[in-house]
Simulated assay, not measured.
Amino acid sequence: MFEIDALRLLVTVADTGSFTGAAVRLNYTQSAVSRRIAALEQQAGGPLFDRLPRGVRLSPAGRALRRHAVDVLNRLSRAEQELTVIHAGHGGMLRVGAFATANISLVPAALREFGRARPDVSVVAVEGRSATLMERLAEGELDLAVVSDYPSGLPSADGITTAALLEDELFVALHREHPLAGAGSIDLRDLRDEAWLQDAYGDRPTMLANACARAGFSPRKIIRIAEWTGKFGYAAAGLGVALVPSLAAWAVPAELALCRLDDPALRRTIHLALPAAAPLPAALKLRDLLREHAEDRLGTLP
């Protein structure tokens, strides 16, 4: 494989028409240019220059190699320029991961402001569960992730730093005709006869199960619904009630009422996750915007 410096030297000799001219332009000695061209010719399998009484000119093989060398050097120059732009926080691509309810309002609001501040940066948004997002961040597939410690603690990954972004309270969503829909705060025990809508599978205790246990009962019925639109649809039809994080409050349909619960443990913490080593300036800019928008998303219920 040809070395970049050797290709650059080949192009310079061809442009100047002599080893002496190339030596002056590149601050080499003439003997050094001669040695390096000889080594390149040996690697190429034959002469790249015709030696003339005054100067040199490219051989047919030299013309072919010069064509490729110019292409390679131009590509490298563009790559250097692009990397400079990326490291300055302008241009390039920013890959952002977030879990579902963070994508309802918090992340889109920050990305809107980011687009105004960094219009040359192309954003790729990825949605997934927090554990998956942390894995992708550790593998270099994401540049920033918004993750949660719900339902089983904050996931960890090597080479990743996390910082708390906000506390996210969990409410209960009821049909507006539910007898408790107008209550300011509900005792969880008053919901012991309700069917609960949730997507958790398996034997791992959920936040709902733990809260019900603290209140002295077990949920009468669990209806497994994975997507938030489905949960809202079932609740709007009066088929059950659901825990809804405040981050999702902006998407709750008008047929539902959100009520606070009297269990202070019904909350989760949202975190920002970044690579520990040299996060992109664009990622740091988005981090700052997410922090600015965090409290705005949690003020009052719609």
Rank of each mutant, 00 (worst) to 15 (best):
D263Y: 00
A131G: 11
F171R: 09
D193G: 11
D296S: 11
L26H: 09
I160M: 02
G230N: 04
G182S: 10
A282D: 04
R136Y: 10
G216P: 02
A237I: 12
V33C: 12
V24Q: 08
G128P: 15
L243H: 05
C212M: 01
R220L: 06
D143R: 12
G202C: 06
P275F: 10
L142S: 07
R57C: 08
A249H: 05
A164V: 11
H271V: 03
M1G: 13
G45C: 13
A164P: 08
I37F: 05
S31F: 06
V70I: 12
Y150W: 09
Y150S: 07
G46C: 00
T162W: 11
L10V: 08
F232Q: 07
A283L: 14
G240Y: 10
I86H: 01
Q30C: 07
D50I: 15
V124E: 05
F49T: 01
E141P: 00
M93P: 02
A6K: 02
S152N: 04
G184I: 05
D187K: 13
P302G: 12
V33T: 12
S59G: 04
G182V: 11
A38K: 15
G299S: 00
V56A: 10
D168T: 02
Q81F: 04
G299L: 00
A138W: 12
G89P: 08
K285P: 02
V123C: 05
G202P: 05
A61Q: 13
T300F: 13
K285Y: 03
H90V: 14
I223G: 00
G159S: 10
M207C: 00
R220H: 09
F171G: 06
L142E: 02
A110V: 05
L170G: 01
A131L: 09
A254T: 09
A163F: 13
S18A: 07
H87G: 01
A102N: 13
V96L: 11
F217A: 00
I104C: 13
V70E: 14
R116C: 13
A145G: 12
N74M: 14
E135K: 14
P108W: 00
L144N: 02
L58E: 07
R136S: 01
R8T: 03
A110D: 10
H271C: 01
R136L: 12
K285E: 14
E227L: 00
D143A: 12
L180F: 06
R224K: 10
A64S: 09
A276R: 15
I270D: 10
A181Y: 06
D71F: 11
T84N: 12
G46H: 04
L290M: 04
A249W: 02
P179G: 11
D71V: 10
Q43T: 10
A14D: 13
E177C: 00
R189Y: 02
A61V: 10
R54S: 14
L280C: 07
S122D: 03
R287N: 10
L298C: 01
I270W: 00
P219M: 01
R112M: 01
V146Y: 08
H87M: 12
P275C: 13
I225G: 07
R220K: 15
A100E: 15
L48K: 01
